[in-house]
Amino acid sequence: MAGHELIAAQLAILADRLPAQAMEELADGLQEAYEAQLAKLHDPDVAARAAIDEFGDADTITAAFVRESPWRRMALKLLTTGPLMGAVWGLTLLSAQVWDWPIPLAVRIAYGAVLVGAALTLLTVVRAKHAYRRTRIATLVAATALITLDTSMLAAAMSMPSSAVWPLLVAISASLIRITATLRAMPAALTR
């Protein structure tokens, strides 16, 4: 059965916002809804409008996809565990007298700037309602930045002499868990 231009236009709007795999399903579902309405109403224009109404407008559908997005979930987890990670590393660095470490000021400032940038990016992702693709890219960038920061902090902490062994072990474990969990979640999320 042929489609309708209103259905095609609605699918074009959704295709600009959502991943291709989801679009195949949505296209099938919307066409199915249109055919069901056409069988009931016998008028293509009325049936197309009824099908779109039944299916939900583009903003409602996009918001539902954003809400259930694995990227948003990843952003939420990284954001909520951030304060704990900050506290653990803060305590470790204070115990290890970080101010004595031979790390240039520019590197310290750059580290802080990237950390704040990643946190703000994750916050934007969690608050976004209608930007599925931006959610995906922003979370990927922020997660990669956090992995890089974790790795460089691990390298720096392990290369510096420190008497604070226990805080350091806790901080290293926390960072390794975060790196592993983020890397494990990424392949599944990349398919969505």
């Binding site: 099938d28 919307l30 199915e32 809804a33 299916f55 539902a64 809400r67 997005s69």
Partner: peptide
């Protein structure tokens, strides 16, 4: 399939639960 899930939900609840079809898909993916 997705549209049929929404229709089944509407039928088994006598039409009292009739979700916008497009919002069912992300829940199914989850």
């Amino acid at each position: 399939h997705g549209y049929a899930v929404k229709e089944a939900l509407r039928e088994i609840t006598d039409g009292r639960i009739d979700l916008p079809t497009g919002t069912v898909y992300p829940a199914l993916h989850r």
